[in-house]
């Protein structure tokens, strides 16, 4: 099939990478599961191997798509399919976070007050957990994980909020510059975005160190520790992924990819970055402040 005709919807003939991805995924899963169940293993070798295979797959697959894209194989209709794919992928991520935010809402407004004797929890409280107040933040009536202190929202988290908000702005400036065809400006603002993202991650790690070493706040600190670390942890992973994606499009910009009128890869990363930004706002309000 000729690969320059732009009037037909491009249907690739072979997909070499999915099976590699499946193998990588399975190695990761089996490696992680074996490691978790093992009492002696110290390094999940198989899991790391799986990660390596997945990274290999992602590079290979994306390289193929980028090559096709740069050779103008894709017409506007293919572009629309990619856009829809990204939008609905981000929607699935929204629902994943909604699950954890929902859990946070439920324990704060339902189960913790019940344990404290509210509503139908009267006898639960008096018979099982007498004296438990049921006030947030809590590690439960069993004091799971021991006494802990909270992160002050107006120090590192506030700095991180400002960093991420700023990174969304720098990314938008870069996007506008791309549409205007000012490529050097784009690269500059993209680098600024990556630096802001990296700074965010640095402070997030700092915050975790402080929590573990000085505040005794750990993943095991009852329901507060569970919701705190799972929500901020999954967010941190998404920021990491987003920062890697931003780095990739920065390199692609430097190599001369993307056109003012057609730059879906750039936009997809931008959408993703704004999405992790919005999730952070939710975290800042519902996990740190309130």
């Amino acid at each position: 099939m000729s690969n320059t005709s732009n009037d037909q919807y491009y249907v690739p003939h072979l997909a070499r990478w999915p099976i590699v991805g499946s193998i990588g995924m399975t190695l990761t899963a089996v490696g992680a599961a074996t490691f978790m169940n093992s009492e002696t293993a110290t390094t999940p070798v198989l899991m790391y191997l799986g990660f390596a295979v997945i990274i290999f797959m992602v590079f290979g697959w994306f390289a193929e798509v980028i090559k096709e894209s740069e050779n103008n194989v894709y017409n506007a209709q293919v572009d629309t399919s990619f856009r829809m794919g990204m939008v609905w992928f981000i929607f699935s991520e929204v629902m994943f976070f909604a699950c954890f935010f929902g859990a946070l809402w439920y324990v704060r407004n339902m189960s913790v007050p019940w344990l404290g004797g509210e509503g139908t929890g009267l006898f639960t409280n008096s018979e099982l957990w007498a004296g438990y107040e049921g006030v947030w933040p809590t590690n439960g009536p069993g004091d799971i994980g021991g006494k802990f202190e909270l992160i002050d929202p107006y120090h590192l988290p506030l700095v991180n909020t400002i960093l991420l908000m700023a990174s969304s702005i720098t990314l938008t400036i870069a996007h506008h510059a791309l549409v205007d065809g000012a490529r050097k400006k784009v690269i500059g603002w993209l680098i600024a975005t990556v630096v802001l993202g990296a700074a965010f991650l640095f402070f997030q790690v700092e915050e975790y160190i402080e929590a573990y070493q000085h505040l005794d706040l750990t993943l095991r600190s009852g329901i507060y520790g569970s919701t705190f670390f799972m929500l901020t942890g999954f967010h941190g992973m998404h920021v990491t992924l987003g920062a890697i994606m931003l780095t990739v499009i920065t390199i692609r910009m430097i190599r001369g990819h993307f056109k003012p009128e057609s730059h879906f890869g750039f936009e997809a990363v931008a959408w993703y970055w704004h999405f992790v930004d919005v999730v952070w706002l939710g975290l800042f309000i519902f996990v740190y402040i309130i």
């Binding site: 859990a103 439920y106 189960s111 993943l219 095991r220």
Partner: peptide, 15 residues
């Protein structure tokens, strides 16, 4: 060691 579904840690199996 999280406590999502452990009442002693403030979680709830019903969650």
């Amino acid at each position: 060691g999280t406590s999502f579904f452990n009442a002693a840690g403030g979680g709830d199996p019903v969650l």
